[in-house]
């Protein structure tokens, strides 16, 4: 029985949970889908560990305009690729980051435009 549980734990650890499977599927898409330049680059404070950053990815993913989220921990950056014909306001971005437990230091848009919802 102990072995069964250990195998179960190991299975979780290697990402066979439903959420992890979805993430893995999306990862494979992300590698080919992103545009050359992100639409939005956010400098986010408090990004220290990948496990904590997962909540941030989920919050930003939940925004309707989001196509892909890329988190660069070592640079403290979050790159957002938006769906075509979609935009997102600074307020919505700030709320998503704050709700995830982090703080936005700066938001930069490419090309620079005023964000709208």
């Amino acid at each position: 029985m102990n072995r069964t549980l250990f195998v179960l734990l190991a299975g979780f650890a290697f990402g066979v949970t439903p959420a992890a499977a979805q993430d893995a599927q999306r990862d494979s898409t992300e590698q080919v889908a992103p545009a050359a330049h992100p639409d939005i680059v956010m400098r986010v404070d408090g990004l220290a560990c990948p496990f904590c950053a997962h909540g941030l990815e989920r919050k930003l993913d939940a925004l309707e305009a989001t196509e892909t989220v890329e988190i660069r921990l070592n640079e403290g950056l979050v790159l957002l690729y938006l769906r075509d014909e979609h935009s997102v306001s600074d307020q919505a971005l700030t709320k998503a980051v704050t709700d995830a437990g982090f703080v936005v230091r700066a938001i930069e848009r490419h090309p620079p435009t005023e964000g709208t919802d």
Binding site: A13, F14, G15, T17, A20, D23, P50, F51
Partner: peptide, 10 residues
């Protein structure tokens, strides 16, 4: 030790 991958931590 803490070993994590995305939303899973051992």
């Amino acid at each position: 030790f803490l070993l994590s991958y995305r939303n899973v931590m051992l």
